[in-house]
Design a protein around this nucleic acid. Structure first.
Lengths: 142, 142
DNA sequence: ATATGTGCAAAGGGTTTGCAGATAT
DNA sequence: ATATCTGCAAACCCTTTGCACATAT
C-alpha cells in the first residue's frame, strides 16, 4: 500500500482511512477512481468523463465499479453531484456556487461566492450547493 | 376558437398570439398542454407530471406531442427547464431562485429572492435561473 | 391545397442492477 | 475463510426521433 503510482493527496488519504474504518475494501480500482476524481473534480466532470479518464489510466475498469465508487464517495461526503442536460456531474462537496453557461455548456465555480452563500443561509436555506443557469460574457439569451 | 373549455389566462393568450404570428398551428393538443403547464408550472412539474396531467384532461395525447410542445414553449420563452435526478423539470421563465430539498425531493421557489439575483448579476453573471440544492427545515445533511 | 402537427412505436443515451467469479481483509 | 468488490451484460428509465396519417390554415 505504499508504491501504487498515485499521488496521495489529503483527500485520498482521508478517504482511505474512512474506508478502512468502515471495513470497506481499498482496491486498486477504488484508488484509481478516487485519485482521478480528486484530480478532475474542479472541472465538474460528468460520469462519462470520469469513466474515460479512469480507463485511460487504468484500462479495464468497469462502468459499474466506477458507478459504485462514485456513489460511495458521495455517500461518504467526498463529492457531490448534480445533473445537467441529462448527465450527472460530480463536484466538490463544500457549499459553493456553480455557474453553468447554457450556451457553451461550460460549468465554472463563481470566484467570490461567500456573500451569496451567506445571503441564502440568512434566508434559512441549508445550502449544499448552488447551480446558476445563465450565460457567460460572450453569449446572450437567445 | 372561443369555447374550448380552457381558462384563457394571459400567458396562454400571449402564446396563442405568438404561435399565430409565427405561422404555427394552434391545435387542441397544444392548447391542452399549454394550459396544463401554465396551471402547474409553479409546482416544477417533471415531464411525466405534465404528460399525465395532460392525459387526465385530454386522453390520448402522445408523448411526442407533449415533448414537442414543451420544447416549443421553451424556445418561445414561456417556460424554462432544468434537470434533477435525471428528470427534466419545467419552471417559470423569469429569473428566480429554486430551492431543492435533497431529502424530500421537494422543489420550491425562494420567496424573497431579488437580492440574491441582484448580487449574482452584480458579479457579472447573466442569470436565467438558480437552483439551490440543500435541505429543508425538518431534514439535515445525512 | 399543403405545410405543419400528431401519434405510434422504436431507438437512444445515460444510469442502474443481478450475478458469478475474484479479491482484500 | 469469507464478506465485499469487480466486471460483464442486460435491464431500466426518461427522452428523443422517424415516419405515415391527420389537420389547421
Amino acid at each position: 500500500m505504499s508504491d501504487i503510482g498515485f499521488e496521495i493527496d489529503a483527500r485520498l488519504k482521508k478517504l482511505v482511512e474512512e474506508m478502512k474504518k468502515k471495513g470497506l475494501r481499498v482496491t486498486i480500482q477504488r484508488l484509481a477512481i478516487a485519485s482521478t476524481v480528486f484530480e478532475k473534480i474542479k472541472g465538474h466532470p460528468s460520469f462519462m468523463d470520469v469513466l474515460e479518464e479512469v480507463r485511460k489510466r487504468t484500462p479495464g475498469v468497469s462502468t459499474s465499479t466506477v458507478y459504485n465508487t462514485l456513489q460511495l464517495m458521495e455517500k461518504l461526503g467526498f463529492i457531490t453531484s448534480f445533473s445537467y442536460r441529462g448527465e450527472t456531474h460530480y463536484d466538490q462537496p463544500h457549499p459553493h456556487v456553480n455557474v453553468v453557461c447554457m450556451d457553451t455548456g461550460k460549468i465554472i465555480d463563481l470566484p467570490e461566492d461567500r456573500d451569496v452563500l451567506q445571503l441564502l443561509e440568512k434566508k434559512g436555506v441549508k445550502v449544499k450547493t448552488v447551480v446558476v443557469y445563465g450565460y457567460c460574457e460572450a453569449s446572450g439569451p437567445g
